[in-house]
Amino acid sequence: MLNFDFNTPAFFLLLSKWRLLGLLTVYADNEDVELSILVHPNNRR
């Protein structure tokens, strides 16, 4: 529903032992793509 191609995933989770460590979101309403990446501060390098 968020992307122009309904088969394109919009959310990717980074899990470790069922704990959420990171999130990547993809917004693509045309050829331009917007990425947003969030990572828990304890897992940043």
Rank of each mutant, 00 (worst) to 15 (best):
M1W: 14
L2W: 07
N3K: 04
F4D: 10
D5P: 05
F6K: 15
F6V: 04
F6I: 04
N7M: 14
T8H: 14
T8S: 13
T8A: 13
T8M: 15
P9V: 00
A10T: 05
F11G: 00
F11I: 11
F11P: 00
L13E: 06
L14R: 11
L14C: 12
L14W: 15
L14V: 08
L15D: 06
L15G: 02
L15T: 01
S16H: 12
S16V: 03
S16F: 09
K17I: 06
K17N: 11
K17C: 05
R19Q: 08
R19L: 06
R19S: 03
L20M: 03
L20W: 05
G22T: 01
G22V: 00
L24S: 04
T25S: 09
V26R: 15
V26S: 09
V26H: 14
A28L: 08
A28N: 12
D29I: 03
D29P: 12
D29E: 06
D29Q: 10
D29V: 02
N30D: 12
N30R: 13
E31A: 02
E31L: 11
D32W: 09
D32L: 11
V33H: 09
E34Y: 14
L35P: 09
L35H: 09
L35D: 02
I37P: 13
I37R: 07
V39D: 03
H40K: 09
H40P: 05
H40T: 00
H40S: 09
H40V: 01
P41Q: 01
N42Y: 12
N43R: 05
N43Q: 10
N43V: 07
N43L: 08
N43M: 03
R44Y: 11
R44D: 00
R44I: 06
R45E: 05
R45S: 07
R45G: 05
